[in-house]
């Protein structure tokens, strides 16, 4: 809350955000605040609206109700089908980088071109500067020699790391990660966790991570949330959440079948 005192708005504020697809309510009055330069991990069983939440932050989906403030600007107000609002959305989105679940690398471009793409589109950097920056990003994710390969030649873990390099290419203020550890072996997911911590430390980026991996949350998060059936069950600093006795949370962390979260 010291930030409010310094007059700087928090990175992200969700104010009673609701979203339904037909009669299926995916987000139900979710409110939360993400501080600057923090790592927020949103946990939850699959199919509970984590992905929808993430998409609402960048205006890929528009909530039915509520406000989504990104650095004080309301994204939910903007209608992606209206040309003027689209322009506004595109401007706000440049402060974001996003790591998609399966990478979403462009198949027809090499790894290097993929990472260079946001810079080519949005900056007036020279080719030499771009190349230097691409090399730097690829080195950070541990793939210094992959620049001329195509995405189809890489393993799943490598693709995800390249996607990471692309997500941070413009050194955005906020990086969104959609299930960074899904489909990866434990060692590779640990590597990605290290990477998030490293980038957070060196570049001071804010991370919003959605995951169902409690070990990952313990390792990287300074704020943890738990989303179940569209409701934000709990939200707070990691130590506090880990100490809490909320049944759903305990069930999730203990990998138990009995508790408030029922799949059958």
């Amino acid at each position: 809350m010291s930030e409010q005192a310094s007059g700087r708005p928090p990175a992200i504020v969700l104010d009673s955000v609701s979203k339904a697809f037909g009669s299926h309510v995916v987000l139900d009055e979710v409110s939360l605040t993400v501080r600057h330069e923090s790592i927020m991990v949103m946990l939850g069983p699959s199919g509970t609206g984590k992905s929808v939440l993430l998409r609402c932050l960048v205006g890929l989906l528009r909530p039915d109700k509520g406000r989504v403030l990104v650095f004080g600007e309301d994204v939910a107000r903007l209608d992606p089908e209206r040309p003027r609002d689209r322009e506004e959305l595109f401007r706000i989105r440049r402060r974001f980088g996003m790591l998609f679940q399966d990478g979403a690398l462009f198949d027809d471009m090499t790894v290097g071109e993929n990472v260079a793409f946001p810079m080519r589109m949005h900056t007036s950097k020279s080719e030499a500067e771009i190349r230097a920056s691409v090399d730097d990003k690829l080195r950070r994710v541990g793939l210094p020699k992959a620049a001329s390969k195509f995405p189809s030649e890489l393993s799943g873990g490598m693709r995800k790391r390249v996607a990471f390099a692309r997500a941070i290419a413009l050194e955005p203020d906020i990086v969104l990660c959609d299930e960074p550890s899904s489909g990866l072996d434990p060692v590779m997911s640990a590597t990605l966790d290290e990477l998030i911590l490293e980038l957070h430390r060196t570049l001071g980026m804010t991370f919003v991570v959605i995951s169902h991996d409690t070990a990952e949350a313990r390792k990287i998060a300074d704020t943890i949330g738990l989303l179940a059936k569209g409701k934000l069950v709990t939200y707070g600093p990691t130590e506090q959440v880990l100490r809490s006795n909320h049944p759903a949370l305990r069930q999730f962390f203990e990998r138990s079948t009995d508790g408030p979260i029922q799949v059958l």
């Binding site: 960048v58 689209r86 989105r93 440049r94 998609f100 399966d102 990478g103 979403a104 793409f117 589109m121």
Partner: peptide, 13 residues
């Protein structure tokens, strides 16, 4: 494969 969304997030129409 979410490449179109990736463009959107990068602020490219």
């Amino acid at each position: 494969s979410e490449q179109v969304e990736a463009l959107e997030v990068m602020g490219i129409d």
